[in-house]
Amino acid sequence: MTAVTTKPGLDQIWQWLDAVPDPEIPVISLVDLGIIRDVVWQEDTLVVTVTPTYSGCPATSIINLDIDTALRGHGIAKLSLKTQLAPAWTTDWISDKGRAALENYGIAPPQPAGGPDRCPHCQGRNLEKLSQFGSTPCKAQWRCRDCLEPFDYFKCI
């Protein structure tokens, strides 16, 4: 038996997902954040695999809802969302486009050194840590000693 319905191509679906913003940091998409691990057709069901950023991130259920709403809006009727823990999400999976968007928005992107590279406001390099935790599980609070502005830093994990 052959399927008679037309299934949108995977490239198209990735494009649609790239238009779904992260609910807490809406300047970057779920694809930029690196949490969409796989998109695959299993017969006529679209299976989207998502990995959480932090175990307790309260945005996880909203993210699933947003993916569901977006894809159904594009006419995907049969959709299955899968949660995958391993390999554990790492900030290395944030795209270059996403990193640039974060900095532009005022959030310093993650750095392997464990702290921000420069102030997202004035590009100053004279920085100090205020707290290892911030407004969401994925961020820490820093301040620039040049322009004196506090800013969020996306923790590197």
């Binding site: 932090y54 307790g56 991130c57 707290s131 290892q132 935790f133 911030g134 599980p137 609070q141």
Partner: peptide
């Protein structure tokens, strides 16, 4: 800052609990 840090820590622990 400490309030936020404690709440974030609690959140991580509850998340681990779910798993």
């Amino acid at each position: 800052e400490e309030d936020i840090a404690l709440a974030n820590t609690a959140l991580d622990l509850i998340g681990q609990t779910q798993f």
